[in-house]
Design a protein around this nucleic acid. Sequence first.
DNA 1: TTGGAATATTCCTGTCAAGGTATATTCAAG
DNA 2: CTTGAATATACCTTGACAGGAATATTCCAA
Lengths: 111, 111
Amino acid sequence: MNSILSALAEPNRLHIVELLRDGPLTVGEIADRLGLHQPQASKHLRVLSEAGLVEMQPVANRRIYRLRPQPLMELDAWLASFRRIWEERFDRLDEYLLELQKLEQKHDDKP
Amino acid sequence: MNSILSALAEPNRLHIVELLRDGPLTVGEIADRLGLHQPQASKHLRVLSEAGLVEMQPVANRRIYRLRPQPLMELDAWLASFRRIWEERFDRLDEYLLELQKLEQKHDDKP
DNA sequence: TTGGAATATTCCTGTCAAGGTATATTCAAG
DNA sequence: CTTGAATATACCTTGACAGGAATATTCCAA
């Protein structure tokens, strides 16, 4: 979960993932479209690869990179656990304020 | 989108967000549960706040922090654009290989 | 078999962010 | 008004990471 998020947190890498959403690409094409030098593209792809976000298939000289769905599915599952917050307007602030108040009162009790 | 991801990429901050999923908390409580010093907790909350992931309401001495759904909804929407990839087993690798082959042939044509 | 294209790796450097510590601020209670 | 609790901020140091440039590797074609 964490390696996924930090992989996606880098703007160029996020951009790469978005590029690959439309289909596989070679390193050179990715570097071109992002205006990156080839080594930086390779390095970003390495990070994405270690996070499991992409996989590579060599074809002669080139390396074709494509998305792997699993990490995105994990992220989706994680997000799902928050969905009630916006679907049910789940808040609990009032509840929490009451609890705080109770704690204050207990604190005031002299034993 | 980017500030959201980099905010969540830090393990302690991800943890804070998960804590707040169950309801609002004060800075001190958050620091306690994560085993953080109070200043670090405040700093992480600042980052989360700037990313719009949390909001704060002062109550006397304390600051109560709670989740804000919107950024998580944005993340969800972004993820949605990838959902076809794993729902339809969308791949396009074969397509792409064919395209590559065509390019090779064109490259071989002597004008 | 030699050359050039495509890619990965290495080394260097600068920047940024996180933790630690000290301090400032605000508030309630006595 | 003073004290202590809760929180935010500032400053410093250190480690991680991204970009740049050079180089190694692999493969195809002539």
